[in-house]
Amino acid sequence: MSEKLKVSTDDLHSAGTGLRTVATELEGLDKLMDAYDLRTVGHQKLHERLQDFSDGWDDNRKKMIEEIQGLGTLAHEAGKAYKQIDTELYNALVGKEKK
């Protein structure tokens, strides 16, 4: 049984870049939450709830950022590897030597 593998290295590269951008944006949320003080929110209980959510979210957000950055790096590196393999296969088929 013969199946064809098709990989868009451009898509992998774009996915890697996009995932790393998402991770960077998530890192920036910490500063955004710090901007919401009691005066901005206007209600003590709401401010306390936002602070509780922010504190609990910090641990989860850090883990998500690490995972997303890892996926971004993997996608980017996979794109580079597929491109290199494709180039080397082409060169081997047409008889070009490695430089």
Results as ranks from 00 to 15, higher is better:
2 S>R: 11
2 S>D: 12
5 L>R: 09
5 L>V: 06
5 L>C: 10
6 K>M: 13
9 T>C: 05
9 T>L: 05
10 D>T: 06
12 L>Q: 01
13 H>C: 02
15 A>C: 04
21 T>E: 12
21 T>F: 09
22 V>F: 07
23 A>W: 00
23 A>Q: 01
25 E>M: 10
29 L>K: 06
29 L>Y: 05
30 D>H: 08
32 L>F: 09
34 D>W: 04
34 D>Y: 06
34 D>G: 08
36 Y>N: 01
39 R>M: 14
39 R>P: 05
42 G>P: 04
45 K>S: 15
45 K>P: 10
45 K>R: 14
46 L>Y: 07
46 L>F: 08
48 E>S: 08
51 Q>D: 09
52 D>Y: 08
53 F>D: 04
53 F>Q: 03
54 S>Y: 02
56 G>A: 03
56 G>P: 00
57 W>S: 00
58 D>M: 02
59 D>G: 07
59 D>A: 09
60 N>I: 07
61 R>D: 03
63 K>L: 11
63 K>T: 11
64 M>A: 14
66 E>C: 10
67 E>N: 13
68 I>P: 00
68 I>W: 03
68 I>N: 02
71 L>P: 03
71 L>T: 05
71 L>I: 08
74 L>T: 08
76 H>D: 08
79 G>V: 00
79 G>R: 00
79 G>K: 00
79 G>A: 04
79 G>S: 05
79 G>N: 01
80 K>E: 04
81 A>W: 12
81 A>Y: 14
81 A>E: 12
83 K>T: 11
84 Q>I: 04
84 Q>N: 11
85 I>F: 08
85 I>Q: 07
86 D>P: 01
86 D>N: 06
87 T>Q: 12
88 E>F: 09
88 E>Y: 13
89 L>F: 08
90 Y>D: 15
90 Y>C: 14
91 N>T: 12
93 L>F: 13
94 V>C: 15
94 V>R: 10
97 E>S: 14
97 E>M: 14
99 K>I: 11
